[in-house]
Amino acid sequence: MATNKLQSKRFKWSLDSSKCSKLSSINESALPAPPAYSTSGVLSSGEVAKKTDASHLIMKKSWEVALAPIKQVPMNLFIMYMAGNSISIFPIMMVGMLFMRPIQALFQLNGTFKTVENSSVIGQKIVYIFGNLVNIGLALYKCQSMGLLPTHSSDWLAFVEPRVRQEYIGGGIMFS
């Protein structure tokens, strides 16, 4: 009883055209097809077109993803220019962002290209990595121009140990 009811419930909303042979025969013989309805050949060709379109889209999408870091370069250059070389909280935050974003992006490389799995995206990955490296390079350049990189000998002065003396001296003005 319960199963019957469940079935009837399901049938209420589903129309199985294969089961009802009468309807199909009527359909085929008596009634003309609705306008713009073609029963032959369309399905297969449409399926093929749909398939090629998706892969094209994926390619397009993946290239978009791959080129995003490079597209950011002019924007970063502008930010760098605007931030100036003074060392204060906002330029430091900006430099931090400049560093963080490409590094994070490089760590999440596979995650980024997961949406376009099962197709080969090695080229895109290389371009993507290259773009991020360019961004890191820009950040390094910014650090360099801000004087944050320990490239001078004075930056290592604090680690220079006092020299060990080889000789000891004593004495003074004579007492007598």
């Binding site: 080889q166 000789e167 000891y168 001296i169 004593g170 004495g171 003074g172 003005i173 004579m174």
Partner: peptide, 12 residues
């Protein structure tokens, strides 16, 4: 060899 000594004579 590493110990040295000096004197300064205020008269001499």
């Amino acid at each position: 060899s590493s110990i040295f000594f000096y004197t300064a004579g205020s008269k001499s």
